[in-house]
């Protein structure tokens, strides 16, 4: 086997089976023609070093073969924007599902160590996202060039564009993620999915019996907040509908707080167990202050949202 044949053989090993022999034959023929041309110009056969120089000019066999690969990218250039958007949504969905699964896993658990649970949650989000990334990439690779983005968006109409203000800011995804995590965790805590004591010390909250009657309503508000937070993560801009939903959630929240304010000792803090335990009923004043703070924040936020609503 001479240098040219050895080179062709090496290129062949990197080629797809369907074109392997065809491309290799053509490459060998081209190399032989080039060798003949150079020999004719020099008036003598090429030396081994000159043949090797010719092959060096052609480049590494793997690179030569790469030019014949049917498609050198995993995701076609035209589908890449769709791929990136789906990847983003997928990671958000995975994070939301993992968060809910973590909360569900706490149900019935004797104790919860947040400092252990959080790294586990982050790791599981990363792990699942990597699997999702691989699957999504595989799907797009298989789709290949057979689907173009024009096919996917063929039914798109300008009327579907969201009504937003030109200079409107996007909703911070970090803030929304924080809001989502806190809301899910609070809902789990309130519904005793996770223990209501804090840390290793037996510090707990005792809710009065009246809470049971209000719990479905509180859960409804929390569920609404979670759905809205997910919607803000997926589509991080303010529309009139989102503003109305956000403002609408303040109304039941304030009503619920007003009802709680009317109760006698709705919440008691318990520290310790057995005979050594001590209890503190949270005073009406503390509850009133917390509610006033929330009401003020709700008022401030509502004014801003109404201004934004009018600007849209």
């Amino acid at each position: 086997m001479n240098w040219l044949e050895r080179y062709t053989f090496a290129v062949k090993s990197h080629l797809p089976a369907s074109v392997r022999n065809d491309v290799a034959d053509e490459l060998l023929s081209d190399l032989q023609d080039e060798r003949d041309y150079r020999e004719e110009s020099l008036g003598r056969p090429l030396t081994d070093d000159e043949l090797k120089a010719l092959l060096r000019e052609r480049g590494h066999p793997m690179l030569v073969a790469a030019d014949f690969q049917p498609r050198p990218t995993l995701v076609s250039e035209s589908l890449f924007p769709i791929y990136r958007q789906l990847l983003q949504w997928m990671v958000i969905a995975i994070a939301a599902v993992q968060l809910c699964l973590m909360v569900a896993a706490f149900a019935g658990a004797g104790e919860v160590r947040l400092w252990q649970a959080l790294p586990q949650l982050l790791w599981s989000i990363l792990e699942k996202s990597l699997y999702g990334f691989a699957w999504l990439t595989l799907i797009f690779y298989l789709l290949g060039e057979s689907v173009s983005r024009a096919d996917i968006f063929t039914r798109w109409r300008p009327e579907s564009l969201p009504k937003v203000i030109a200079e409107g800011d996007y909703i911070s995804r970090t803030a929304t993620t924080f809001e989502l995590v806190v809301t899910v965790y609070f809902a789990a805590w309130l519904n005793r999915v996770i223990p209501q004591s804090l840390g290793d010390n037996p510090i707990g909250f005792v809710f009065s019996d009246q809470w049971a009657t209000l719990l479905p309503w509180i859960n409804a508000v929390l569920l609404g907040s979670i759905v809205l937070a997910v919607s803000k993560l997926l589509f991080p801009y303010w529309t009139r509908r989102k503003i109305i939903e956000e403002l609408a959630l303040y109304i039941p929240s304030l009503i619920i707080m007003a009802v709680i304010y009317g109760w006698d000792a709705p919440l008691t803090i318990v520290i310790g167990t057995g005979e050594t335990s001590s209890q503190w009923a949270i005073s009406s004043l503390s509850i009133a202050l917390a509610m006033a703070a929330y009401a003020l924040f709700a008022l401030y936020d509502s004014v801003k949202k109404i201004q934004l609503y009018r600007a849209i």
Binding site: V19, V23, E26, L27, S29, D30, D33, E34, Y37, R58, G59, L63, V64, D67, F68
Partner: peptide, 27 residues
């Protein structure tokens, strides 16, 4: 033309094309 003769022809007309571009393009 076959590949090599096409490359030579283009070269003679002033258009240098390397094999790594020409052959995949022909395919």
């Amino acid at each position: 033309h076959y590949g090599y003769s096409l490359r030579r022809f283009l070269q003679e007309q002033g258009l240098e094309v390397d094999e790594g571009t020409l052959y995949p393009l022909l395919r």
